[in-house]
Amino acid sequence: MSESSAQYRDFVSLLTNHQEVIRAYLIGMLPGSPDIRDLLQEVNIFLWEKQKDFKPGSNFGAWACTVAYYKVLEFRKKKAIHNKYMFDPRVADLLYQEKSPSPPESHEAKRNALRHCLSKLSEKQRKLIEARYESGRHDLNELSTMTGRTNASLRVTLHRLRQTLKQCIENKIPEGGAL
């Protein structure tokens, strides 16, 4: 196998293994945005086009999240939606500087903890979370129609459920991030 095909294979592997890290980072920067898939695609295209700039052995996740960060800034500028999302760009910048991407192994531990914590919810609560966040998810207006509840009521319920899940996951995963 030639050196270039080995580098190509290694890059594809890195890009594939970091999809969840990049997606989670984008969701953290733009919580609730329906544009995450498009932004992830833009990040992937950019990374692919710039793969020769990546230095093997360096932190791929950090590089990918840096690209994602700048794609989010472009997105916000293009859409002029700074006030729609939770964080002011300066706050997001501070968070970005403080948080480095976690390794893919810790994501597996978090997924396992999430499965466990979801199983502790009532069936009604679990179905609401699934309807909102799993693939083919529904936005608040659709959920409101489906459940006969107001958007405000759903927002509060979903917030409480997310907090419950977050607390459960934090209790399930020790400080090091592995189960």
Results as ranks from 00 to 15, higher is better:
88 D>Y: 07
92 A>S: 09
66 T>K: 12
62 A>D: 01
117 C>W: 10
81 I>Y: 04
13 S>V: 03
71 K>N: 00
82 H>M: 06
28 G>E: 09
24 A>R: 15
35 D>H: 11
66 T>F: 05
28 G>S: 14
25 Y>I: 01
71 K>E: 09
77 K>V: 07
10 D>E: 14
36 I>Y: 03
69 Y>P: 01
52 K>N: 06
101 P>L: 01
61 G>W: 10
93 D>C: 09
99 K>F: 14
76 R>F: 04
70 Y>V: 02
67 V>F: 06
32 G>P: 07
69 Y>R: 10
27 I>L: 06
87 F>T: 04
86 M>T: 14
29 M>F: 02
23 R>H: 07
122 S>F: 09
20 E>D: 15
56 P>H: 08
30 L>D: 01
116 H>E: 14
10 D>R: 08
26 L>E: 00
48 W>E: 05
19 Q>S: 05
91 V>A: 14
113 A>F: 03
92 A>L: 15
72 V>Q: 02
75 F>R: 00
37 R>A: 12
31 P>Y: 00
103 P>Q: 14
30 L>K: 01
44 N>A: 05
110 K>D: 09
107 H>C: 05
27 I>Q: 11
104 P>N: 04
90 R>K: 12
91 V>L: 11
90 R>P: 00
104 P>K: 09
56 P>R: 12
23 R>N: 08
44 N>H: 11
